[in-house]
């Protein structure tokens, strides 16, 4: 199967004016600006299959946005290439726009003072959505995500959660094949996040739309994505499944063991004893030691009543990757 979204050695360099400090520096900048090249995106390659939800992560300023802007056709890469739904986005931005939906969590496409339906009609005209498709999508979103009761309300009176759902519904009106979601859950409470996660999973399953999810929220990733791409300082530093990521990067595994009777803890160089009071033992292993090595050691010191292994939480993994 051909990937729906792909990038080959995608690179973007910007020339920026370096600000000098102080008044003298500011005046100096006016007449003789010091320029510097920055590598915003450095040789990134990846591919996404149709129907996937892929998480796209990285600390602030890592080059996520620049990559997305090249994929959506806003920016032209310095070198390398990208392809989205069979088109080169930055060469044919207008055709590309029909294939994609874009939702920015921090920017709105809705008309602030007007009822939601006006924004929908505006989109219908702009994208030339046929009446039948428009009606069908409208009823789909009304039935599933309660869009119907807010259609006549001015956008400014909606809650943040309602607004985000409306934004996503609007981005889906023209049946895009790829949906770019840039921090869709930003500022939402637990309930709002949960509803949005359901919505995203639902449209992915019902519409077979490919989703690239940019987020800082590890919960979004855990709930929605099976695969992630992580970039930092412009370069791809990880690309693969979440489970593999945890295995490869999060070697911290916690073993909680309840023995039948008090016993001495394990003595091994690769196991740290966090706690060993009476029957309850808590071991920590920070190296990549396979289970078949650890398990016999645990069983050797006493009779086990209960036993749990905790994987490292994803946010811990992320923190480690970012600071590495």
């Amino acid at each position: 199967m051909n990937p729906i979204l792909s990038a080959e050695h995608l690179t973007k360099r910007f020339t920026v004016v370096v600000g000098r400090k102080g008044l003298a520096g500011a005046v100096g900048n006016l007449f003789a600006p010091t320029k510097r090249e920055i590598m915003a995106v450095n040789d990134i390659s990846f591919s996404v299959e149709e129907g996937e939800i892929v998480g796209f992560l990285g600390p602030n300023g890592a080059g996520k946005s620049t990559t997305i802007k090249m994929l959506t056709g806003i920016l032209t890469p310095t070198s390398g290439s990208a392809e989205a739904a069979g088109l080169v986005p930055y060469q044919r931005p207008r055709e590309n726009a029909r294939n994609i939906g874009v939702v920015f969590g921090q920017r709105s496409r809705l008309w602030w003072n007007l009822p939601v339906q006006d924004s929908f009609e505006y989109t219908k005209a702009l994208y030339q959505i046929p009446e039948g498709v428009f009606r069908e999508n409208l009823s789909y979103f009304s039935e599933n995500f309660g869009v119907s009761e807010i259609m006549t309300k001015p956008v400014r009176t909606l809650s943040l959660g309602q607004k985000m759902r409306t934004e996503i519904a609007m981005a889906m009106l023209h049946n895009p094949r790829i949906l770019y979601l840039d921090e869709p859950t930003i500022g939402l409470d637990v309930v709002g996040k949960n509803e949005l996660h359901q919505l995203i999973r639902r449209i992915n399953a019902d519409r077979w739309v490919t989703i690239l999810l940019l987020t800082h929220d590890v919960l979004d990733i855990e709930r929605l994505c099976r695969r992630v791409m992580i970039i930092d300082k412009g370069s791809m530093i990880w690309h693969g499944g979440i489970e593999e990521l945890k295995r490869a990067k999060g070697m911290e595994k916690h073993y909680h063991v309840l023995y039948e009777s008090p016993c001495d803890p394990i003595q091994e160089p690769f196991i740290q004893v966090v706690q060993a009071e009476g029957q309850r033992h808590h071991y920590l292993c920070t190296e990549d030691v396979p289970m078949e090595v650890i398990l016999p050691r645990i069983l050797a010191v006493g009779k086990v009543v209960d036993f749990t292994v905790n994987d490292p939480p994803l946010d811990q993994v992320m923190r480690r990757i970012y600071t590495e």
């Binding site: 959506t72 806003i74 931005p93 994609i100 874009v102 920017r107 702009l126």
Partner: peptide, 13 residues
């Protein structure tokens, strides 16, 4: 404010 990016992902010049 950067919202120009939303104008540039529309199917019209």
């Amino acid at each position: 404010d950067g919202s120009i990016s939303m104008m540039l992902t529309r199917p019209a010049s």
